[in-house]
Amino acid sequence: DHDVVPEDKFQETLHLKEKEGCPQAFHALLSWLLTQDSTAILDFWRVLFKDYNLERYGRLQPILDSFPKDVDLSQPRKGRKPPAVPKALVPPPRLPTKRKASEEARAAAPAALTPRGTASPGSQLKAKPPKKPESSAEQQRLPLGNGIQTMSASVQRAVAMSSGDVPGARGAVEGILIQQVFESGGSKKCIQVGGEFYTPSKFEDSGSGKNKARSSSGPKPLVRAKGAQGAAPGGGEARLGQQGSVPAPLALPSDPQLHQKNEDECAVCRDGGELICCDGCPRAFHLACLSPPLREIPSGTWRCSSCLQATVQEVQPRAEEPRPQEPPVETPLPPGLRSAGEEVRGPPGEPLAGMDTTLVYKHLPAPPSAAPLPGLDSSALHPLLCVGPEGQQNLAPGARCGVCGDGTDVLRCTHCAAAFHWRCHFPAGTSRPGTGLRCRSCSGDVTPAPVEGVLAPSPARLAPGPAKDDTASHEPALHRDDLESLLSEHTFDGILQWAIQSMARPAAPFPS
């Protein structure tokens, strides 16, 4: 592969990997390779389809078979030569091979799209000592099968071997295949498990690692696999990028399955594409389908809103127990993405979901129960707010008499603000006073009005108090039968009158 990737590009890729991570280095090298001529790309395919690569990765054979028959990708048995050289000459001794072996032994695996480039050397060096003999053996194999790289107009793939297949390693990572398949204008990513390549439709969760975000852009890794992070704060999961590491605690105790298979379609829109997988259930989501939507993949363990709600429900009964003089119970939860139609709101002032922060849900004790107040519409209280300059209440639009249902020339009671006709409430011909108009209920007259088809109010509507207090003497005590009587009149003013009279009014101040 030294004929494909020059030394300066190799060093530039290593520097970019240390600065921005393996995914960015892979993407940059792939983009550079696509700008080369067809001879360089053909050399790339020839390096990929060597015999030892085909033996190690069985899924490469179907890719090789898909090439046109007129494309010669065979390799000479006596060494490598550029395709432009007409004579089959043995190339001179390859010093770059020693360079590659020494550099890969030092860096474990470079971040390139060629056999030198995919593992994360920093994480491997940190986690190597417990498994040094086995990992050293794996390093000797890295130059042979560490990076199976493929690129063409139909298929483009980048393979990364790992030393996680050490025997006896619980939940060992089998390997990473960062794979971009450009077929019919689409893009897919796969993962390699035990020599087999699994596409998103049959993606397997190998051991402790999972394909957290099938994305090839942005600074985030394709698999949430930063070796420096180790395990999740809650004892979460091992990262795919942690090559040759000792077994780590796999999943939280509440995880239903340690080796679950995540779905390959969004649980909201039932469509495929780039998904984020939940650590607590097999569901996966688009970032845009979450509520609120996320802009980037959160670091650490992530769970959907259903799993978060289940966790909150487990903690909430203990938080609601009476604990005198104790601060509110704080339950730190990872930043969760909410699927459509589901929402768990945190306290005000918290950062938005999706940031690399930890939301704190506070379970406050329930407030003391209070008697429910009568629910009145805002339009129902409008007549009470229509007060004239002299303190006389004006008529609201649409006000109707509670007896006849007519809204023409209605009066407004100064005591309960109900609309009424003087002739309907006082049919006996009582003279109307000039000021202080009161309806039949507030004036103490319980004589029913002779209106055909309208039920008369119940005599129990009024329960006047002592006459010594004029204001308190007109406080009506309405009961269920009074409400039914008012409802039978089918008037809004009657219902409003009952609601206003049912509310307690402050006692009249004593004259000074």
Rank of each mutant, 00 (worst) to 15 (best):
D409T: 03
M503E: 05
P347Q: 12
G388C: 15
H286Q: 14
F492I: 03
E452G: 11
R295H: 00
L258C: 10
G375N: 06
P253Y: 15
R338L: 15
Q257T: 05
E263S: 10
M355F: 12
Q260D: 04
C401F: 03
S502G: 15
I297D: 04
L290E: 15
A472S: 10
L478F: 08
L352P: 04
P464Q: 10
G436V: 12
I276K: 04
H421Y: 03
A288W: 12
S473M: 06
A508L: 09
A267F: 15
V451F: 07
F285K: 14
L486H: 01
L250T: 10
P351T: 12
Q309F: 11
C386V: 13
A428F: 13
L381N: 11
E296R: 09
A267H: 08
G465M: 13
W302G: 13
P374T: 12
P397S: 10
E263M: 12
C401E: 03
P476Q: 11
L352S: 07
F492E: 00
D493N: 03
A319D: 11
A418R: 12
R438I: 11
G300C: 12
S443A: 08
L275T: 08
T471N: 06
P332K: 12
R318Y: 06
Q257N: 13
A371D: 07
Q309K: 10
L258N: 02
R412G: 09
L337D: 04
G354P: 03
C386D: 05
I500S: 04
E489T: 00
A396C: 07
L258G: 11
C413Q: 01
K261H: 05
L376M: 10
P433N: 04
P347G: 07
P317K: 09
G402H: 03
F420T: 02
A251K: 09
S431F: 07
D469R: 04
D271N: 04
Q393P: 11
A288G: 13
E314H: 14
I297L: 08
E489S: 02
A319T: 14
Y361V: 09
E390L: 13
L411Q: 06
G375S: 10
P282R: 09
P253E: 10
G280P: 07
P457S: 11
L381A: 15
M355Y: 01
G272H: 03
L381Y: 01
P450I: 15
V360M: 10
P317Y: 07
E390K: 07
L275Y: 04
S306G: 09
P459Y: 04
Q316F: 08
D481F: 03
P334E: 15
L483Y: 10
D356I: 01
G272S: 08
C404S: 04
S291P: 05
A472V: 10
G273W: 06
E265S: 07
P293E: 06
V387C: 11
L478I: 06
V360R: 02
E320Q: 12
V246G: 11
